[in-house]
Design a protein around this nucleic acid. Structure first.
Lengths: 129, 129
DNA sequence: AAGGAAATACGAAGAGATTCGTATTTTCCT
DNA sequence: AGGAAAATACGAATCTCTTCGTATTTCCTT
């Protein structure tokens, strides 16, 4: 079996676009553009071009049935997150994901829920207290 | 007071060079180049150029006293890690560092020590079980 | 003081990401 | 059918990062 997206490492703009697709589901360029327009001010053709490139790269797939092509993320959010995280871990944390976790926990304030969830995960991961 | 390095977001190559400086301490271009040469094969002048640019950016400072200038990292490893981590959190984890932590914990296998350390930190962070 | 080795300075090229203007195609409405 | 509106296709410019070749400077040795 071949894993096509183990190396999903979208760029910044690509990530923004994927974000819209993850949130809205399959969308046209116009929809993505309008969605992003509330926070950004990138030209329509810029988004179009990016999405075309993303299709070439396999980050999204597109349905050309209708005039307005519909794009669908072909990478899940979790996959993208893993890819980017592993990248960072390799480049800046000496390959230790847990060192990154430690850093992440140290920064900012946590929600009680989040802390609980982390504790739960920690318990699953083994090693008793 | 002005914080010059709150935005330390070194690029890949810069990170490699910083890695050498963090490990070896203040070094000349030659030393950095030779250190990296064991794993890479980047030309001497490439490293030189990069280090010059890093000096302009303020990522390193340099002592021009002697013929061979000596470069010193002006960003700590922890600062760089924070900067890069925050970047990733903002771009791919909806701003939640803890969501990133969760992901990081989930991937790969952990050392018992690491898990213990995380538990310890978690306890400090508050919220009882 | 002259030569040469070792260092820095500089400019420019190549690759990838982002941007957008313009041309072309498609569709629908009257 | 004719034309406007909406969409895609395409090419090119810009920016950043990385790369390196060549020119220049500095310093040591004889």
């Amino acid at each position: 079996m071949r894993f096509r997206h183990m190396d999903a490492r979208p760029t910044n703009k690509e990530l923004e676009i994927l974000g819209v697709l993850w949130r809205r589901g399959p969308s046209s360029v116009r929809e993505v553009h309008e969605d992003l327009a509330t926070k950004q001010d990138t030209g329509y053709t810029t988004i179009l071009k990016l999405m075309q490139i993303m299709a070439e790269k396999g980050l999204v797939s597109r349905d050309e049935e209708n005039r307005a092509h519909i794009y669908t993320a072909s990478v899940t959010e979790a996959e993208a997150q893993s890819g980017l995280m592993n990248d960072l871990v390799a480049k800046a944390f000496g390959g230790s994901a847990h060192r990154l976790a430690l850093h992440a926990l140290g920064s900012k304030q946590a929600t009680q829920e989040e802390l609980d969830e982390i504790r739960r995960l920690l318990d699953e991961l083994g090693g008793e207290k």
